[in-house]
Design a protein around this nucleic acid. Sequence first.
DNA 1: GACGTTGAGATTTTT
DNA 2: TCTCAACGTC
Length: 811
Amino acid sequence: MNLQPRALHSAADDAPPPDLFTPAAPRGLLEGLNPEQLAAVTAGQAPALILAGAGSGKTRVLTTRIAWLMSQGLATPANLMAVTFTNKAAKEMLTRLSAMLPVNVRGMWIGTFHGLCHRFLRAHWKLAGLPQGFQILDAGDTVAAVKRVIKGMKLDEERFVPKQVAWFIAGAKEDGLRPQDMEQRDEQTRRLVSIYQAYEDQCLREGVVDFAELMLRSYELLRDNAELRAHYQRRFQHVLVDEFQDTNRLQYAWLKMFAPPGSQQCVFAVGDDDQSIYAFRGARVGNMADFEREYRVRQVVKLEQNYRSFGNILDCANALISHNKSRLGKNLRTEAGPGEPVRVNEAASDYAEAQWLLEEAQALHRQGLARSQIAVLYRSNAQSRVVESALFNAGIPYRVYGGLRFFERAEVKHALAYLRLIENANDDTSFLRVVNFPARGIGARTIEQLQDAARASGRSLYQSVGAVGGRGGSSLGAFVALVEGLRQATVGLTLREIIEHMLHASGLQDFYRAEKEGADRLENLDELINAAEAFVTQEGFGKDAVALPVDESGAGYAPGDLAPGLPVAPAPAATPVPDAETGEIMSPLAAFLSHASLEAGDNQAQAGQDALQLMTVHAAKGLEFDAVFLTGLEEGLFPHENALSDPDGLEEERRLMYVAITRARQRLYISFCQTRMLHGQTRYNIKSRFLEELPEPCLKWLTPRHQGFGSGFERGYQQAWERGSGLKSMVGAGRVEPQAPPAALQKSAAAKTGAEFGGLRVGKGVFHTKFGEGVLLTLEGSGADARAQVNFGRHGIKWLALSVAKLTPID
DNA sequence: GACGTTGAGATTTTT
DNA sequence: TCTCAACGTC
């Protein structure tokens, strides 16, 4: 395809039109933008594709575009949607946006694909055919659920590995395929599809959805419901997409539901085909070309000015990526000058490599570079071991990214399982996780009998307890009584109190207290309380949260609503989503549980601890560092051997290398080894072909090009290594442990008068068209964000958004 | 149910 | 070589 000049603004076109700086346009909004960026930000009301190179100010363009649209009256907070992939990116966008414009971003449709789908399904759960209190399975839960299905079907777990089957199901969903849509050529596929079907049935029975289901179900609902589709299309005039190169088939199809080709809605897609490194997960770079074609995109803007790296680094990146055939075509440039050469090091062994980089990093640190500004990148996680070991022995603080995240920790998952059972006792995944944890004498046989009974009756494990004689005195009966007791005891409590009560009543707290090494786990459970507290404050469940009115129709907004000086939450997030029909909103507990699944929590480095940053190249995407050590540039490692045979795979590896190079601001080191321990065997690797693709004038070889084995240089390192202790002894120390996030902000309740809530009074009766009469328990929030908690007796205790639910006081 | 032994598998993984 | 998960034993 040809994305050449035809749509590029020429320099002359780049002068802003005279009416650009109307009083409504905040001063300085467009200041400092280069011509390309300006062209992107002020692109006309038509589909636009922004090819944003690494370090070209992509996020700035995206947020400035939003601010500009609103300041020009071309969009309102309510009729604009912006989608990202990560929670981090979404937060970043919201934070920057609130700094640019005096607009309260809470309630705006800015979020991750999955976050927005979740929101959508909460509002339209009934139309989507979901139970109202549906909960979300994270990756681990999904595998566990698939595993149960395979066991239940008495299939061989060797032939149907749960993880792979879960992968298969997710892949199918991401291609928009339900079991009945799938081709079943061979026996194996036929079985897989039947597992898929059984898994679907199980999820529905338990009231849970996995990540892919959030997307697929949202997509199908929009596809099949013309009225709803029209509603949302009317509402969102602007759809902005970040990291477009990472979208999969389903996500692109989902976007088209909101803004079909040829419609009035404007899609503003930002992406970089050269940074597409997730094809293995279903990402489809081809979506960029498809988008350009299907939407007849005439505004294609390339952001090629790089503000991050010096020339030598960029020359390397450009030269490398030019070896890829399938590209849209882009070349990074900088005004920063060539800078230092890219240093290349050949080490005799992986030990030597680690030792070398350690000393080099120490030297940089002595020159005044913060350790947190130095990154060590590698292709695969296994490579971190040697480096960690060397750093540990040298007593240099470091932090490894990746691994378990907060909400994935075992103790946290246990606690969440109890909380989920309070919300929905039919959640079998949670039931199984904690039915015998802490141990309460419920063995495998009991569980098996229970599962058989549940399967026979098509009911949940919880519902089947009676069927296996698990009433009264039995241990199963006691567990049911525990869950029942938890539910009853936590009615009307704050989220914090609910968790505290659960930790105590479940025995989790006592269990970890008694355990020798339970201190860390107890700390994490405390941390869970903090996280809940922070969530309540941020997500608008707090007492005096303030939000602009956002009604589903998107009406009722004018540019003038962007009142200056409006209070803005520091880390803005979505307001609780009301049910589109009744106005009912989730309980804080249910909302927190969704949050826990949707956002696995940070494992980001903590500020304050100055530590070397160790991570895979994938994990480094989107980050930048003053100095970068790119290690293991060896054939078979980088590019990885599994990708060598496949041209597409090799191109993805090259893009990965491109991403790695472009992380560096000032200094880039590239290293490789002659020998490396891998899977218990010494491997003799040759240097990566990618090294040959870098321009020699940009490089500076730190070692002779062809150093032999067993040189004195190498022996010295080898001996130094052997003097150090092994890896076994390195538990904890040297590694920077994550610190507890700041405790949640405590906010005082604002006094509310009855008048503000349309005459409603706590303790008095109210009437709801759907739920009938009830007693008002709580009133909080204000304006369009006002909420009420009402006890409707037979219908239970519900939270209602007063802007949607029509509540009338009764005497 | 807590513990030890054995064996397979060991890219990358935003949600 | 190392890790994790699945078994088997007390």
